[in-house]
């Protein structure tokens, strides 16, 4: 890291993980389908009732904390607003795993403290409803339903630090405070 407010790696906490039911979605899901454009300015309580509903109407009704969203290619394309990532985080899910992400969604995920793992081949290896155990730091994914193991692409250490700090704003604040 170069100098300035992000310069020190000061976060050493226990490895992060998520475990729970997998909700599986397809390719190229735009942010407009994660949060409908006409709901963007509404309170979260209202947005949460509609997250991803046009892809799977059960999702906003049944998703539970710690569960895992698995998606195909280019997840979160279209708008760069963080609201789509924020709404997904508010549902309580533990992480999103996709074949690949739209870069604004990937970036927003870490900035607001929601892990996003890139794992090419994942959609062929898990079915909707499987139980997954995901180690965020190492990228190891265990499909407990089938017993198979997968390895996600490594997450840059900078982004893991950001997650541990609780997102970009706390990270920037904390590091700026330390000079």
């Amino acid at each position: 890291m170069n100098g300035g407010f992000f310069s020190k790696t000061v976060f050493k906490e226990k490895p992060m993980q998520a475990r729970g039911r997998c909700w599986k979605f397809g390719d190229n899901i735009p942010t407009d389908r994660i949060v409908r454009t006409d709901l963007v300015f509404r309170p979260f309580s209202e947005i949460l009732k509609h997250v991803l509903e046009t892809c799977n109407p059960e999702f906003p009704l049944k998703v539970k904390p710690g569960e895992i969203v698995v998606a195909g290619k280019h997840f979160g394309q279209s708008s760069g607003r963080a609201i789509a990532a924020k709404a997904l985080k508010q549902t309580g899910i533990g992480c999103v795993i996709a074949e690949s992400f739209a870069r604004t969604f990937y970036r927003n995920g870490f900035e607001i403290g929601m892990p996003a793992l890139e794992c090419p081949g994942i959609t062929a290896q898990v079915s909707d409803g499987d139980i997954l155990l995901v180690e965020i730091d190492s990228g190891r994914i265990v499909n407990e339903t089938t017993g198979r193991e997968l390895q996600a692409r490594p997450t840059p250490p900078f982004l893991l630090d950001m997650l541990k700090a609780g997102g970009l704003i706390p990270m920037a604040e904390r590091l700026a405070g330390e000079g």
């Binding site: 407010f5 760069g80 607003r81 970036r107 900035e111 607001i112 900078f158 970009l168 920037a172």
Partner: peptide, 18 residues
């Protein structure tokens, strides 16, 4: 394009972004 938190958390207060 970068998200709201980058703008609000780093560009506005520090003039920087990652």
């Amino acid at each position: 394009g970068i998200g709201n938190d980058s703008h609000a958390g780093t560009v506005m207060p520090f003039g920087k972004a990652w």
